[in-house]
């Protein structure tokens, strides 16, 4: 006999991923700190290490609440960076 699968379709992705930068030399690295413990410190150190190795610069540090989507004006400011580091859990 036949039964339905329960999951249904997946909706179209609203946002496509940006093309990866071929080199970071001269580019700006942004940080989106989601306010989880030590996220800002960890991302700052990662960005600084990446900048030393690649010739990029670190700028544009933004902070948001982990439980809510980032506001549009915050994303607009971060969009001026070519690379953004984010993501931290408990």
């Amino acid at each position: 006999m036949r039964i339905y699968a329960p999951v249904g379709a997946v909706g179209p992705a609203a946002i496509s991923r940006a093309v990866t930068e071929p080199t970071l030399a001269g580019k700006r690295i942004g940080i989106l700190d989601n306010s989880k413990p030590n996220a800002g410190l960890l991302l700052q150190r990662l960005a600084e290490g990446l900048a030393v190795r690649t010739g990029a610069t670190v700028g544009l540090v933004e902070r948001k609440n982990a439980a809510l989507p980032a506001p549009d004006d915050l994303l607009a400011r971060l969009a001026e960076a070519e690379v953004v580091l984010t993501g931290s859990a408990d």
Binding site: M1, Y4, A5, G8, A9
Partner: peptide, 21 residues
């Protein structure tokens, strides 16, 4: 929306559906 996927299952016993899923 796209048609839903169907599965073949030997029995409609609740335990069989649970295990298939």
């Amino acid at each position: 929306a796209d048609p839903l996927e169907m599965l073949d299952i030997a029995s409609d016993d609740p335990e069989a559906v649970r295990d298939c899923y």
